[in-house]
């Protein structure tokens, strides 16, 4: 199969070479200082802020003609955001795309880490809305920058403590703050805290791009990443009472689907590729039969 020709009106992967150089320099510094947010001159992209302009710029700066790109939005390959970004790079870079996690060399993601374990050589690119983990506690950039410089993260622990005081447990369930290699407190983007354990000691390189906030940061492979917690309130991930209704998976992150107005609901894997692979392999959930199309 031949890749579609790249329209001559665009540079390869849309961005001009000087912009790519600037982003590449920021990415290399981000990798060298794990968890530190490197400012970069974010460009306007042909999509609105909030649709992954940071992730798209990072992907555009790293992608080559031989790469195989997968894009997911909340774990799904088939939502508007994921389909659009995949089509964007198929058109402007002529790269091959896939929905299979194992086949991809670059995976751009909005708010999930795939269930299938990543491999060395793969790069995971996160779309990040608010890169500063301290922003809701301290709105001034000058102050948060000083707090990172001084490694002054007491405020974040106060926030988690207030969760415990109010709810009896740490109520933060997504964008759960982590400490990278014992130094920088970092926002892992709004992934469910279920995915936090996958951030540390990953064989894959993880890059984070925030377009509106103009920051790039990174977690190199095999880096220590700890979710913040207390000795008497250790970090815990979500657990689900029942397995996936379609593929029967336990230990995967599930989405709740409301089926009707009589309280019927279905829990299914948020990672569509993972769920489909399992069903193809013969795994079957309790509600799979009821979900078959009836035409």
């Amino acid at each position: 199969m031949s890749a579609p020709a790249v329209p001559a009106a665009y540079n390869f992967a849309y961005l001009d070479e000087q912009t790519k150089r600037m982003i590449r320099r920021a990415i290399l510094k981000a990798v060298a200082i794990p968890g530190y947010q490197v400012p970069f001159a974010s460009r306007e992209m042909p999509m609105p802020y909030g649709w992954g302009t940071g992730g798209v710029q990072v992907t555009a700066a790293i992608i080559g003609a031989d790469d195989v790109l997968k894009v997911i939005d909340q774990g799904a390959d088939d939502t508007t955001n994921a389909v659009s970004i995949r089509a964007f790079f198929a058109k402007t870079a002529g790269v091959a795309t896939t929905t299979r996690t194992a086949d991809a060399t670059i995976i751009q993601t909005r708010h999930r880490i795939p269930e299938t374990a990543l491999k060395a050589g793969q790069i995971l690119v996160f779309q990040v809305p608010i890169p500063e983990p301290l922003r809701f506690l301290e709105p001034r950039e000058t102050e948060t920058r000083t707090m990172h410089a001084l490694e002054e993260y007491g405020l974040m622990h106060v926030k988690l403590y207030e969760d415990i005081a109010r709810h009896g447990h740490i109520a933060t369930t997504y964008a759960y703050p982590v400490k990278v290699e014992g130094r920088y407190v970092m926002d892992p983007s709004p992934i469910p805290k279920f995915d936090n354990p996958k951030l540390g000691d990953s064989p894959a390189l993880q890059l984070f791009g925030a377009g509106r906030e103009k920051r790039i940061y990174a977690i190199p492979p095999h880096t220590r990443v700890e979710s913040l917690d207390f000795e008497d309130h250790p970090f815990e991930v979500q657990r689900f009472a029942e397995p996936c209704g379609l593929c029967g998976a336990t230990g995967a992150y599930l989405d709740e689907v409301i089926l009707d107005d009589r309280g019927n609901r279905l829990f299914v894997c948020s990672d569509t590729d993972f769920c489909e692979e399992r069903r193809r392999a013969g795994h079957c959930g309790a509600k799979a039969a009821a979900m078959e199309p009836t035409s």
């Binding site: 540079n11 390869f12 150089r21 990415i27 290399l28 060298a32 790293i62 080559g64 390189l205 492979p221």
Partner: peptide, 19 residues
Amino acid sequence: DPGRQSQAVFRALLDAMAR
């Protein structure tokens, strides 16, 4: 071919820096 070749060099650099 600056676009293609500098991308290849950058990916080698990124890989070296990450590992």
